[in-house]
Computed example of a mutant assay.
Amino acid sequence: MSPTPVLLDCDPGIDDALAIAYLVAEHLAGRIELTAVVCTAGNVGLEDTVANACAWLDLAGAPELPVAAGASGPIAVPHVLTPETHGPRGAGHAQLPTTTRSTDPRDGARLWVDAARSHPGELVGIVTGPSSTLAHALALDPALPRLLGGLVMMGGTFHGHPGNTTPVSEWNVDVDPEAADAVCLAWETAQADDPAVPAPLWCGLNLTERAVWTPERSERLLEASDSPVARRLTEALRFYFEFHDSVGEGYLAQVHDPFVAWLALHPEAVVAGPANVRVECAGEHTRGMTVADVRGHRGRVDNARIATDVLVPGGPDAVLDEICAAIVSLAGRPD
């Protein structure tokens, strides 16, 4: 069988960098075809997300592939950056090399549509940042839900798990709730018309906060690989450890994005349940909340699957072992 075509929409960001390295490793191993990378403003501004994505692709030794700039901010509200979380340029303590990788002249929304139409029914989209570019792509081509083979979102929080931005909201959704809700509504409309349209997999904090990278794992990574990509990742992660420690989580890092990338490539290992998901965009205390109707109270079709666990001995920690091993396999670009 041909490798699964994958598009990554990201906002690097430290844990996005781990996701990029992991997906490049899977591409080079022939297990997926990383067809495109879309960069959305999120953790840092659009110029930095594009530069960071290209630099991490270079360090990982990725072949040339389309890399496009997407949305420069949320679709309806001002953009809030997170220098305290990922550093002023989005790479923590890592000094990234200047990239010579060319970017695609297409807008990120157009790249979403073109990639889906090039692989109808096959392309798996992975969103590890705000949904802003995807919302623009859905406006550009409302048929997109029927064209994708699957969509996996890092966003939201479910089943009463607390938020990380407000008491009820997760950051990727909170930064652009209107975009996230547009994604929910687009799939609700598509699935009402055709129940065969695959429902997006929402991977919220209730699951992704269990993916914890420790300094000991960084040490093991460096012991196994002294590659430039491994060194830069551990430098970036040191900033992430410091951030989590500053907010009372301990000297560790919750690495949501590579965990979600792994889930996207291993659907058979995901425990998930159906729901109708919408995003609150107006509530004074609940803006950005992902509201999951699992009992059919609103009488609407299920437009999502909510991930709750992984069927892997050792759980998320074992998944991070796999991701670490994939990164070790990268020779990458020399310094």
Results as ranks from 00 to 15, higher is better:
V152E: 00
V168W: 06
L140F: 07
A180T: 11
V197S: 13
T157K: 05
G163S: 13
H159A: 11
G125T: 11
L144S: 06
P195Q: 11
N172K: 10
P145N: 13
T166E: 08
A143I: 01
P198K: 02
G156S: 13
V168Q: 12
N206F: 05
P162A: 14
T189Q: 14
W187T: 10
P215D: 05
L185F: 02
E188Q: 13
R210K: 15
A192Q: 15
E216M: 08
L140A: 15
R210C: 13
M153H: 10
G125M: 02
L123P: 04
E188I: 02
D176L: 05
V197I: 15
P130W: 00
T208E: 06
L201K: 00
E170I: 08
G155F: 03
E170K: 12
P198N: 07
N206E: 15
M154P: 01
P200E: 09
T128Y: 00
W213L: 09
A211H: 06
V183K: 07
R146M: 10
V152Y: 01
A137F: 10
L140G: 12
W171F: 14
P195I: 05
T189I: 11
R146F: 04
M153E: 11
M154N: 14
A190Y: 01
T189R: 15
P200T: 10
E178Y: 09
H161D: 10
L140I: 08
T166W: 05
I126N: 00
N206M: 08
S131P: 00
S131A: 10
S131T: 01
A180W: 03
L205P: 08
A139D: 15
D174C: 14
V124K: 05
G129P: 01
G125D: 05
S131L: 00
V124W: 02
V152M: 00
T133E: 00
H159C: 09
N172G: 07
N172C: 14
M154Q: 14
A180N: 07
G149D: 09
A192L: 12
L123A: 04
P177N: 01
A137Y: 07
L134H: 02
T208V: 15
G156Y: 11
L144D: 03
E216N: 10
V168P: 04
G204A: 09
L134C: 06
T128R: 01
T157E: 08
A179D: 04
R210W: 09
A137D: 14
A211S: 14
L144H: 02
Q191N: 04
A190C: 11
L134F: 08
E188D: 07
V197G: 10
P130M: 06
S131H: 09
A143K: 07
A196T: 15
L123N: 05
E170G: 11
H159K: 09
P195H: 06
L144Y: 03
M153R: 12
T214L: 09
S132V: 03
T189L: 13
A179T: 08
G150C: 04
A196Y: 07
S169P: 06
W171C: 09
T128I: 05
